[in-house]
Design a protein around this nucleic acid. Structure first.
Lengths: 97, 97
DNA sequence: CATATGCGTCAGTTATTTCTTACATATGAA
DNA sequence: TTCATATGTAAGAAATAACTGACGCATATG
């Protein structure tokens, strides 16, 4: 569920695409490349990270500035009627998405 | 995009699961089985149909009542970083999801 | 010190979805 | 005709999600 709703957003899809095509990147830089505000990007990255679709790693740049690098986590979601049915059976009993 | 956001809802996932497990069903009956109001179900079915995840067919029951049957459309969405990247490339140019 | 870059977060607004209630139509049966 | 079933939809409330702008804090440079 968290994964599905995380992917139901144009911005977040674009973020994943950018990180996939361009490799890992830090927040401010990524915000400039994608063309959205840093707070907004932060919000979306947060959701993606909660969903386990991206990971972050805080590093110190050559100049000593703190850079928070994000990269996509490898994931495979196959959505079919059967898969969804199985997933829902799980949810009803009690669980995650 | 329409497909992804259509699937980012517990209710809609349950609707798909119900139609997959129980086969085609008409609106009022399905609403009773799932336990949500008919207008609400109607709303969700609408989104699912717009996304092409379900199809509907109006029929006349044995008693002459109009019954709108819904069934799941076979679909396969595989969501991976690469697939999303390809999809976003499409969107940027101009297209659907 | 002032400026520029990086980080995060909170407060408040705006937009979008979701849901309920109520209305309107149609058919068959009592 | 009245009741029960089916359909759809529109209006407004409630709940989420999305977004902006302004903070505060840290480090390096001019």
């Amino acid at each position: 569920m968290a994964r599905l709703s995380a992917l139901a957003s144009p911005h977040r899809l674009r973020i994943i695409a950018a990180l996939t095509a361009g490799g890992r990147n830090y927040v401010s830089q990524l915000a400039r490349e994608i063309g959205i505000s840093r707070p907004l990007l932060h919000l979306h990255l947060q959701k993606l990270e909660e969903a386990g679709l991206v990971t972050s790693q805080l590093e110190l740049g050559a100049d000593g500035k703190a850079l928070n690098y994000f990269e996509v986590a490898p994931f495979v979601l196959d959505l079919t009627p059967a898969a969804i049915t199985a997933l829902v059976a799980t949810l009803t009993t009690k669980s995650e998405t």
